[in-house]
């Protein structure tokens, strides 16, 4: 059986400050986007900003989501700063 994973992507200021564009993480059963943020923030250093820092937007499978939204194996979860296009 293959390992159950999910993909995490970062954009813009977060991508630069974390020095990371994409991560593959194990997907453990009952998990929300907020749980994922908390786990990443506990890495410390620049990662700490993911909790309690500037606002972080969440998308799951390219649709806007909330901290309470569930994430599961195979999902693409993205974290990014508020958008500034146009």
């Amino acid at each position: 059986m293959t390992e159950q994973t999910l993909t995490v992507r970062f954009f813009a200021r977060l991508r630069e400050e974390l020095g990371t564009e994409q991560l593959t993480l194990p997907a453990d059963g009952e998990q929300t986007a907020g749980d994922l943020l908390a786990a990443l923030a506990s890495r410390g250093g620049p990662w700490a900003q993911l909790q309690g820092g500037q606002p972080v937007m969440i998308a799951i499978n390219q649709a806007m989501a909330k901290p309470g939204s569930p994430v599961k194996a195979g999902d693409e979860v993205a974290f990014f700063p508020p958008v500034t296009g146009g």
Binding site: A78, F80, P82, V83, T84, G85
Partner: peptide
């Protein structure tokens, strides 16, 4: 145009002599 500015995932970085700056989302937008 208004909805694009606050919901489409684009991010702007300003480039100037003083360096680079990721633009902050504006309350007015």
């Amino acid at each position: 145009m208004d909805a694009l500015k606050t919901s489409a995932p684009f991010w702007k970085k300003e480039l100037s002599e003083s360096g680079e700056h990721w633009v902050e989302q504006k309350a007015s937008d």
